[in-house]
Amino acid sequence: MSVPLSVLDLSPIPAGSSVGEAFANTVDLARAAERFGYRRFWLAEHHLNPGVAGAVPTLLMQAVAAATGRIRVGSGAVQTGHRTALSVVEEFGTLDALFPGRIDLGLGRSGGPKGPRRDNGHTERRVVDGVVIPAPVSLAGILRSPRFRAQLELIRQPGAQASDYAQVVDTVLGLIAGTHRSGEDVEVHATPGEGADVQTWVLGSSGGESAEVAGARGLPFAANYHVSPATVLDAVEGYRAAFRPSAGLERPWVMVSADVVVGRDDAHARELAAGYAPWVHSIRTGAGAIPFPDATGAGAYEWDPDLVADRLDTQFVGDAGTVVDRLAALRDLTRADELLVTTITHDHADRVGSYRLLADAWAAR
């Protein structure tokens, strides 16, 4: 089964580079992704990370959409924990008016009240049909870190509480459809936003609330193998179990993400990916993503193998054939309808080259 590939970009800042260069690289990569035949180009939202410039996806989406002509442009994902549904709808309604029929609205729960999560009971690394499903890693250290608390302090209005995620999604859908009514049963209309021709997605890392919200509302779902590989199967299974057909979607539709680096050969790819371990380590310690180091600079960092083993084990690194084989196995195991690829290297040309090699090999396969 052939499925389309899409791109997730964080606007990474390589060591020795700048925010402006990172944004220029994002726009250049989007143009290249369109030439290579990728279906979508999504922009992530991250905050207070010295090595990641992608904090405001809607602004970057405007730059990317203006620089391209066909590729769909989206958010992967808007963090709803510190946003109102109306602000999201107005921003994406504006984008749709400027670039009709090309905008994807990816919604992430991020920071709201947590619903129950599925506990599959797996505590050991497994290999399922050729796909590594690592043991879960505790990220409690990040949540306890002063940097995480500082982010919450800066990103929310004082005293504000994140809304229930299902309620946020329902309000977004209602405002776009023109059917939302306020708590006092007042008819309201979002301008811009109402009637916008956007594709609304839900992104999730587990079989918990995000998967269930997406399924129950008949929305497409993006499962994060690259963020939380231990729970990807729970996420897609939870979504499919909760799915109910909607006016826009008759059957479950799943996109699965993966970290990928493709080189001329396996050794070259491993060299390009050398900075990945210290980069992930910096995130998981709560310090924030460091500027992505080159192979020489990566050797200067000390990192805890246990804290990053799951991400290293599930990053697809190698020549085009090696990576295509692993992506195909992930597609088959998760029964993905699309795959979302994210690639970070120190040199921008290597990143563009990785996407080109992958697109060519995937099309040939």
Rank of each mutant, 00 (worst) to 15 (best):
D170I: 01
D170Q: 09
D170A: 09
V172C: 11
V172K: 10
V172H: 11
V172S: 10
L173G: 03
G178K: 12
G178N: 12
G178H: 10
T179E: 12
T179N: 09
H180Y: 14
H180C: 07
S182E: 04
G183N: 09
G183D: 14
E184K: 07
D185W: 13
D185L: 15
V186D: 02
V186H: 04
A190S: 13
G193I: 06
E194A: 14
E194I: 00
E194H: 15
G195W: 06
V198Q: 05
V198K: 06
V198D: 08
T200M: 06
W201K: 03
W201Q: 05
L203F: 05
L203K: 00
G204F: 08
G204C: 01
G208H: 02
E209A: 06
E209T: 12
S210C: 00
S210V: 03
A211F: 03
A211V: 02
A214D: 09
G215L: 11
A216C: 11
A216E: 13
R217T: 00
G218P: 02
L219I: 07
A222D: 09
A222L: 15
A223W: 08
A223N: 08
A223S: 10
N224W: 12
N224R: 15
Y225W: 10
V227D: 05
V227A: 14
S228P: 08
S228K: 13
P229C: 13
P229Q: 10
A230C: 14
T231Y: 13
T231K: 13
L233R: 06
A235N: 07
V236Y: 07
V236M: 06
E237P: 06
E237G: 07
E237D: 15
Y239E: 11
R240F: 05
A241P: 00
F243W: 03
F243Y: 01
P245G: 10
L249S: 01
L249I: 02
L249R: 03
E250H: 03
R251Y: 07
W253M: 11
W253Y: 15
V254F: 02
V254I: 15
V254A: 12
M255W: 06
S257C: 13
S257G: 13
D259E: 15
G263W: 09
G263A: 06
G263M: 05
D265G: 01
D265H: 01
A267L: 01
A269K: 04
A269P: 02
R270N: 06
R270Q: 12
R270I: 10
E271Y: 12
E271M: 13
E271Q: 14
L272Y: 00
A273K: 04
G275L: 03
Y276D: 00
Y276W: 12
A277M: 01
A277C: 04
W279F: 15
W279A: 06
W279R: 08
V280S: 02
V280Q: 11
S282Q: 03
I283R: 05
R284M: 13
T285H: 01
G286T: 05
A287C: 04
G288C: 02
A289N: 00
